[in-house]
Design a protein around this nucleic acid. Structure first.
Lengths: 143, 143
DNA sequence: GGTTGCCCTGGAGTTAGGTCGAGGGTTTAT
DNA sequence: ATAAACCCTCGACCTAACTCCAGGGCAACC
């Protein structure tokens, strides 16, 4: 099956503009043009595009994705390099997940304060303390 | 304890420029100025800044953080709104984590292909197929 | 053969989140 | 009383990743 850019955009859920942008950025060297100079996406191309969106969705930068795709274009000889890239990216993703989770815990802590029955009381107290801290240092009270 | 902007930057691990930028964006209405017009951060201010970085680290936009901080400035009466915001943000974080995890699974699938002993063989085959798909449709072979 | 609906390129514009520099005031130590 | 090390504002600049537009080509239908 061959897809023109609009159909490819619908299949990948990317916008037509984004697809052209990706091509301009060197992410789609595998997409051929037909006699009219139109991009002609094959099913294989769409599979590769799915890989690209996976990498993008997990935070890989376009410049890195371009490097990965360059390895793909190079053929089977670049398997070790691709593997190394994906492994490194995998670690980066997991590290980021951990970082987010740590921050989420802090948020959950705040949430537990807010849902406590003494929430208003505690916050009133904290506020008074913050106010005092300013006053004690001759600072204007912003509250 | 009072911290000038440089010390506050070191404590929060944000840059001085970023702190000033946040102030400009209305994220730090609680930070007072001393007689010289210098920002004077209290320990309480730094604790609030930590909350801000938590929200930022988990992907909350500055405009939303500003909204949250506005609620904080409003005092204890806004506890329900703050709680609602954090709960919604919590859900957004979890959803994003899930999205990333789903994409990670795809990457792991690719990795498993690459680490198979038949990797080169499989990729060679896939490549030949992709090539054939182009040729069969009268397209130039980009490989 | 004209209208419609695709497609193309090049380049400008946008948004978020900073980052930097010029020009100038303050504080502290020598 | 001057140098060093801070601090301030304002506004320009930057990067990533799009997004939009003008000007123009191709293809199908009425």
């Amino acid at each position: 099956m061959i897809y023109m850019i609009k159909a490819a955009a619908e299949k990948t859920r990317l916008s037509v503009d984004t697809l052209r942008f990706y091509d301009k950025e060197g992410l789609l060297p595998f997409v051929s043009r037909n006699q009219s100079g139109y991009r002609a996406f094959t099913d294989g191309d769409l599979r590769l595009l799915k890989t690209i969106t996976c990498l993008k969705n997990t935070g890989m930068k376009i410049s890195e994705i371009r490097r990965y795709i360059a390895y793909v274009m190079q053929g089977p000889s670049s398997v070790p390099q691709r593997q190394a890239m994906l492994l490194a990216h995998r670690e980066a993703i997991l590290a980021e997940q951990q970082r987010v989770l740590a921050n989420l815990k802090e948020i959950d802590l705040k949430l537990s304060v807010y849902s406590s029955p003494e929430a208003v009381q505690m916050i009133t107290l904290e506020r008074a303390y913050a106010k005092a801290e300013k006053v004690a240092n001759g600072l204007p009270d912003p509250y």
